[in-house]
Every structure is written in structure tokens, then in C-alpha cells.
Design a binder for these strands. Structure first.
Lengths: 293, 293
DNA sequence: GTTCCGCATGAATCGATAG
DNA sequence: ACTATCGATTCATGCGGAA
């Protein structure tokens, strides 16, 4: 019986990260506070100071990540006086100087953001998911995110046989369009680097920045059960919750008490009463939870 | 009766651009040769030299563009030894130093991207469409690219039903459905900054890099009839052809004779026999065509 | 003359093999 | 050891030949 740990820490990740062991984390998935937003958190970093603010953090992240691990950064530059700001692309360049490899840029195409109107631009319906690695030999479990052909697909195939030649771009699973006719004889299909997921609208109690599907997809892709997942800007704890559900150990930091409380509520219900264990933490966090499995 | 000009020039854009008048172009839409590709054309620029190669060109483009005009650059970085290369984001930073405003980044989500399976990455199915401007007061005709409401709602509902079948049935009726209801009754919706189009594979004689829909969309969005469109890397002349069809004047440069010939064939059939006029060209191109309208 | 199936092929990338 | 070339991978699309 393995122990799965879900460690939620109330604190500033700039401090808390120092307590983590070197080469201990398999996946870092996070959505840091965007420039000038979440003004209470980390003081609302102005765009021009964003890179300088983030670099010490990314340096620590580089330290705690295993050589085989991956860092996925969900971020999007804001518009400043009519222009897209350059802090994100500058950050990429600076992180490479720190030693990070910029392996890939995934696009999260937000499905259900609905129309808005500005004089100079359209609705922003995508965000970057930057994949960084410590070495070229990182772990990737591609089969885990393949879109399975379930009963649903087989039913469709039977019905299609009559009217099949209508090439119907349907959305399945993680949101990757597949032509049904091509699925014949295959069980699974590989995705691409564009993720077409809806934004989360369900739960109003947490300020979900991203839908649960997003961390889930990357956790499946880059970790196996028992691995360690870190979210230094946990927010309401989506990453930790999903990690727990999927049998991964996790650590999450959140500086703001009100978010931290929500995160605790999200994670706690699934816990057994058992003593906290924080194997990777050299110091002690203010909250720790352990789930037996 | 307005005269619409379609000027196809065989030559190196680095030379030909110098012959264009300052502040004369309303829209520049182009897809330059990507690093190391189209090796016959412009010699296949190595990634590390790409920025230095492009900057003199973008400087000239800045000169010929009207203050109210827009420059749309279709580009994607290639993978070099396991990493996304940084020449595209470096180019953005350098172009801003030249005086360009980086207004927006559209995503072209390619429906049919090149297949392939690799151990460390998935299929690359998107490209950047970088929007640069000379001033914040650029012309934008948003109504021209509005999507008919019926289609939009239908798509959304279709996605929902698919999601419903595969995943979580509970969230359909309550949350998201209502939001759609808010938009029913309107006739048109604004698009977003993600374009979901298939690549063009039709014509064997031309290496159609982008589908006709792509330049068409930006020509509608950023120009009106009688405006001037420029494509310094014309290729087989898609941009020029679409400009002509839509009643815009255009100028296209192509360095490689075989592409140029295809471009001529594409454009010529729609011309009346009439004397060439090249109002904006101070020098003389090797081919010019005029279409009465 | 339609409809239908098979097939070639592309802004690709990796890894093995060859010089 | 380093670079250059080649084969395998595998999907949406249009074309051509077949029913």
C-alpha cells in the first residue's frame, strides 16, 4: 500500500522552494500570477518587472526538478498600451540562460470563451503552455494521453457507414479533432501540440484559472503514479487535487490565505485521517495531508 | 470605373522594396521562407542568422507601410536539437527596437498538420501570425470578418454535445448553455485570435504554404477596396490573387523564377488586356498587370 | 456522370548510418 | 567526434482510377 502525499503549504514560494530537495520533483505545473493581476498576491507585479521577479523562482525550480522532469508554465502576456507586452518572450530567453531547455510551446485554445469586442483587437482565446526541461532525456508517457476509442466511437462508426463520407470533425476526450473514418482499425490516436479545452465554468468557489483537464493532461503525459508534482502558485489547489486523484504525490504553495483555505477544502474531503508525512520537505509547512492508497 | 493593379515582380525583395514609395502600403501579409527551408530560395537561412537576415527587410517594410497600415507575419520556429529555436521571439524584440508595435499574436491552428511520431514531442499543428503596426491608430474593419451567428452557435452547441457524450453531462444544461442563450437572437459574432483552417495541398505546381482563407481573412480585416496589399515573399502568388479577387491593389515579389511563373499563371487568367500601370513603383518591374473593375 | 476507394504527399523530426 | 544524408513515422486532403 503506497502512501500518496498531498502537501499544501501556506507561504511565499520564494521562501518555501528553498526547503525542497534538489532533483526531487518530476513535474512542475503552474499558472503564476500574471502581470498586474491578482494584485493582492505577490503585490501585483508590473509587466516591466515581471522577468526580474520570476527569474529567482525559475532558478529554484530548476534546482528542485529531476533531470528527467518537466516544467510546464501556463502564461499569457497582457496588452499594455495597445501592444502585447514582451515579458513572456524575454522570460523564455532569460530562462534559457539559466540552463532551461525550451522544448516546446503548446497552445491552449480556450473553447468557450464567448465573444467580446474591443476597437483594436478580438477576444483573446488562447494561452501559452511553455514546456521547459532540464535535459533532453525527460520522461514522456505519450500513450497516456492518446485519445481512446470507446463505445462512443464504435457506435458512431456503425451509424456512419451509411453517410460516412461526410468528414465530421468531432471533438473527443482531450479535445483533439479526429476524422472518424480514420479511426477504423485503430484503437488510439495521438494528439498534437494544440489543446482545445473549455474553460472551467463549473465551480464558483475557486477562482480556477485553468480547467481541471489541463493539469490532468500534463500530469498524465509527464508523470507516472507515485511521482512528485509541484505547483508553486497553487491558487485554489487544482493541480494538487488532480495529482491526488491520479495517484501522484504533490506539493503546492499559496501565499494568500483565502485561496489556501479553498485549496484545503478541495483536497481535504478525500483524505483519510492519518499523520502527515512530508518526505521531501526539509522544513515544515503549515499544512500537510496524507492519503493512503 | 476603378483600376485595380496586380503587380508581380521577379526579383529579390531586398532590392525591390527600395523602389517602393514611403507610406504607400495598407497591408503587408507574408510568409517568409522559414529557417533552413525552401533552400533554393534565399539560400536557406540558418536559424542563428535568421534575425540578422530579416531585420533589413522589416526595416524597409516599416518605411513603405502607411501609418494606418498593418504588417501580418506568418512564421513558426523550427526545432533544433530538441529545442524550439528562439529566432522568432528574438525577431519580435528586435523589430520593436526598429519602431514596430507588436499589437497582437494570432494563432493559426492547422487542421491538417504534418503527421509523425517522435519520442519527445507531438505533431506541430499551429503557426504564429504576428501583427505589427506602425502606429496605434491602424485601420481595422472588424465587421468584415464577423461570423454569422447561426454558425457560431451551432459549432458551440456541437462541441458541447460531443463533450457531453464523452465526459460530464451535468454541466451542459445549467452553466454554459445559458451563456449561449445570451447570444441567440444576434446575427453575427466577432471571431477570436485563433484561426482554425486547413493547410492547402491542392495544387501540385505551387508550394502553397497557407490556405487562401488566411490572407483573405486579414485582407478583409485590415483593408478596404482600392487599398494596397504587399507580399514581399509572394511564392506562388496566393496573396496577390486573393487581393485581386477582392478588389485590392497588390504588389508581390518573388525571387525564384519557377514560383514566379506559377504566380503569373494564377493571376493572369483574370486580367483584361490593358496597359500595365505601376503607380507606386518608382522603378520598373519585370511584369505588371492591370485589371479594370 | 456520379460516387467511392486507394494512394501520394507535405514549412516535420528523430535517430541511425555513413563519410 | 562531428556533420551530412536517409529511412521511418503517420494524418488530412485531393486526385485518379474503378464500380
Amino acid at each position: 500500500m503506497k502512501q500518496i502525499e498531498t502537501n499544501l503549504i501556506l507561504g511565499d514560494c520564494r521562501e518555501e522552494l528553498k526547503k525542497l530537495k534538489t532533483n526531487s520533483i518530476d513535474l512542475i505545473f503552474t499558472s503564476p500570477p500574471y502581470a498586474d493581476s491578482r494584485t493582492n498576491t505577490y503585490g501585483g507585479i508590473p509587466p516591466e518587472k515581471y522577468v526580474a521577479w520570476f527569474l529567482p523562482i525559475s532558478k529554484e525550480l530548476l534546482r528542485v526538478l529531476k533531470p528527467s522532469g518537466t516544467f510546464v508554465l501556463n502564461i499569457k502576456e497582457k496588452v499594455v498600451s495597445g501592444e502585447r507586452h514582451t515579458y513572456v518572450i524575454e522570460l523564455i530567453l532569460e530562462m534559457r540562460k539559466q540552463g532551461w531547455l525550451w522544448t516546446e510551446e503548446f497552445i491552449w485554445h480556450k473553447k468557450n470563451s464567448y465573444p467580446g469586442k474591443w476597437p483594436n483587437r478580438f477576444r483573446d482565446s488562447w494561452e501559452r503552455l511553455l514546456q521547459f526541461n532540464k535535459s533532453r532525456q525527460f520522461h514522456m508517457y505519450q500513450e497516456e494521453v492518446m485519445v481512446p476509442m470507446g463505445e462512443w466511437a464504435e457506435k458512431r462508426l456503425k451509424n456512419l457507414s451509411a453517410t460516412d463520407k461526410v468528414r465530421d470533425p468531432s471533438r473527443v476526450g482531450s479535445g483533439f479533432g479526429k476524422k472518424i473514418a480514420n479511426w477504423i482499425g485503430r484503437e488510439k490516436a495521438y494528439p498534437s501540440n494544440v489543446l482545445h479545452l473549455a474553460t472551467e465554468t463549473r465551480n464558483k468557489n475557486h477562482s480556477a484559472v485553468f480547467p481541471q483537464d489541463l493539469p490532468e493532461w500534463f500530469i498524465k503525459l509527464f508523470t507516472k503514479k507515485g511521482d512528485w508534482v509541484l505547483d508553486p502558485f497553487m491558487g485554489s489547489g487544482t493541480t494538487a487535487l488532480i495529482s491526488q486523484k491520479m495517484g501522484r504525490n504533490s506539493i503546492g504553495f499559496e501565499i494568500l490565505p483565502q485561496y489556501f483555505t479553498v485549496a484545503q477544502k478541495n483536497v481535504k474531503p478525500e483524505l483519510e485521517a492519518s499523520p502527515a508525512q512530508m518526505a521531501l520537505l526539509e522544513g515544515k509547512g503549515k499544512y500537510a495531508a496524507t492519503k493512503s492508497k
